[in-house]
Amino acid sequence: MQSTYRKPSMFLAALFGTTLLFAGPAPADAATQASHNSSSQSAAAANPCKRQNYRKVVFTFYRGPQKVLLRCGTKSWGYNHIAAHGRWNQSFKNKIADTLWKGYQTSPGVIYRYKPSNTCKPKPVKNFKVVMNSGPYGGGGNVSPQGIITATYEYTSFAPSTTRTVKC
């Protein structure tokens, strides 16, 4: 009769209903394959609009109770427009969210992060601007609301009003 030797760790694993895996060194091509898979996954995550319709909603932001959508868009508006100008990253996304939530609307659909100054300043101030359309894209009902058209940095300064006199 032949006796079978079992390692104590295998016995404990069977006893507790778990499986222990003992991994040896991986072949070089497996490491390369794992690296290739993670890089292709991160590239796909880096561009959520790759091979997507322009109507697809990529992110949802809020301006009070109102939802503000960032759609894939085209070269002239939306995520694809922002990314094509090399402006998309996590920090930029946070600035869009912050501007929409706390910003100042200067005209319909134009929101600045900081209120344009009403005092005399010698230099323009770097400000963050989001332009959005709450209505349908192109005036039709195909994509409604269109959402964010663009977001960018802009230098804002005091523009004297014709109705009041300001001495600098």
Score class of each variant (00 low, 15 high):
Met1Leu: 13
Tyr5Pro: 06
Arg6Ala: 11
Arg6Thr: 11
Arg6Trp: 06
Arg6Leu: 14
Lys7Leu: 12
Pro8Cys: 04
Met10Asn: 11
Phe11Asn: 09
Gly17Leu: 06
Gly17Ala: 05
Thr19Trp: 00
Thr19Pro: 01
Gly24Tyr: 03
Pro27Arg: 03
Ala30Leu: 07
Ala31Glu: 07
Ala31Gly: 06
Gln33His: 02
Ser39Tyr: 02
Gln41His: 03
Ser42Val: 03
Ser42Leu: 04
Ala44Tyr: 01
Ala46Pro: 01
Cys49Lys: 10
Gln52Met: 13
Tyr54Arg: 14
Arg55Trp: 00
Lys56Val: 15
Val58Cys: 04
Phe59Met: 14
Tyr62Phe: 15
Arg63Ala: 11
Arg63Trp: 02
Gly64Asp: 04
Arg71Gly: 13
Thr74Trp: 02
Lys75Pro: 06
Gly78Trp: 02
His81Met: 08
Ile82Tyr: 08
His85Pro: 00
Arg87Tyr: 04
Arg87Val: 00
Trp88Gln: 03
Ser91Val: 10
Asn94Ala: 15
Asn94Glu: 12
Ala97Val: 03
Ala97Gly: 15
Leu100Glu: 05
Leu100Ser: 09
Trp101Tyr: 09
Lys102Pro: 00
Gly103Ile: 00
Gln105Tyr: 00
Thr106Ile: 11
Pro108Ser: 04
Gly109Phe: 02
Gly109Met: 02
Tyr112Val: 02
Tyr114Ala: 11
Pro116Glu: 03
Pro116Gln: 05
Ser117Thr: 15
Thr119Ala: 13
Pro122Ile: 00
Lys123Asn: 05
Lys123Ile: 02
Lys126Met: 08
Phe128Gln: 09
Val131Asn: 12
Gly139Gln: 08
Gly141Asn: 15
Val143Met: 15
Ser144Val: 12
Ile148Cys: 12
Glu154Cys: 05
Glu154Thr: 15
Ser157Gly: 14
Ala159Ile: 13
Pro160Ser: 10
Pro160Ile: 01
Ser161Arg: 12
Arg164Pro: 01
Val166Ile: 14
Lys167Gly: 02
